[in-house]
Amino acid sequence: MTNEFVARSLDEVRFWSRIMKEHSLFLRLGFRCEDTQLINEANQFYSIFEAIENRAIAFNVGTDPQTIRRFNEEVHNAVSHIWVFKRKILGLILRCQLPGANNFPLLVDHVSREANYFRNRLAELNAGRLEPLPDAIIDENVFFLRIMADHAKFISHLLDPSERKLVDQANHFSEDFDQLLFQARDLDSMRPQSQTAPLLDQFLDQNRVSVASLRDFKRTARDLIEACRIKSIIHPLLADHVFREAERFLFIIDMFESSLTGKPMPRDPSVVMD
């Protein structure tokens, strides 16, 4: 169990610290040139999470669990601070105090939700109180389905309007994931009666199909953006960022499926690399 705690902690920190680092960059790019204080704060958070990411990479599954527990506490503190920063930015935008800036309110809310998810996961790991499988399946899917729906909306709005076919595809994904999210929330409200193995298995299967399709769309968009073959204002790193989050969701779905049915993981389960 101690090795499992270390492995799970390192997996979460390695993945999400990079995400937090990149959030800092994306927010900074959306500020106006006169927003020097916000730019400086974003740069500080970038450095903080880059250092956390590097430390997490230096640890391995043989690291003393107490060392990892203390590390998780440090990371939790950093994530709590960036969450406060993100919510401050959201408040400034919604009060019209950053006119002309380029961060969508929904995007800022989105990245703050991810920070809150990350810090909650760290607290659960250190407390040794991860959710039972049926609850985790529903809660993780509700969270990630909304993330995927948001991504589709961001892609649609950041593509050039002349990229009509890609915009239509992104809008289709937005509608698809909105419907999947509504279904997930219905399953959530029917708990605990809805938490039967057949229903949860079907729930995972249905979501996997749509997430895999969106993941493939994101990969294609990322490759086209990197090759400068489509018109957009999407940063190449943002395109890769949303692709990696779809990959993460697919891995979680596969992990749940394996735990629920006893079937072997169809994808490589080795997330933490020593």
Rank of each mutant, 00 (worst) to 15 (best):
I230D: 00
E163I: 03
R119G: 01
M20T: 02
Q183Y: 11
I253K: 05
A170W: 00
E226R: 02
M255W: 12
K165S: 12
R222K: 14
R164Y: 07
N102W: 02
L90S: 08
R129D: 08
F173H: 05
V142G: 10
E163N: 04
G262T: 09
L224E: 01
F49G: 05
I48K: 02
L200D: 01
N40G: 12
Q66M: 08
F59Y: 15
D109K: 14
A221P: 01
L180G: 03
V142F: 06
F26Y: 10
D216A: 15
E124P: 03
R113P: 03
V79M: 01
I89Y: 02
T63W: 06
R95M: 14
I93N: 04
R146T: 11
V167W: 02
Q179D: 09
D64T: 10
I234W: 01
D223Q: 10
E257I: 04
P132Y: 15
H23L: 05
I57P: 00
H151I: 05
F5W: 07
N141M: 13
H172N: 12
I93A: 05
S174M: 07
R244H: 15
F177Q: 00
R70K: 13
F243W: 12
H151G: 04
T261S: 15
E74M: 05
A197P: 04
R28D: 05
N3S: 05
Y117D: 08
L92M: 13
V84A: 12
L125A: 09
G100Q: 07
I252M: 12
R121G: 07
N60G: 10
A127M: 09
N103V: 08
S189I: 07
Q179L: 11
H235Y: 14
F177G: 01
I19N: 00
L92P: 00
F71H: 00
A127L: 12
W83R: 06
R215A: 11
A101D: 04
D240Y: 04
A239H: 00
I225K: 01
E124Y: 13
S174Y: 07
L237Q: 09
R146L: 11
F104I: 08
A149L: 09
L166K: 02
L130I: 13
A227S: 15
M148W: 02
T63V: 06
A127H: 11
L25A: 10
H110P: 03
S9H: 02
L180H: 05
L200F: 04
E34W: 14
S174Q: 07
I68P: 00
A42Q: 03
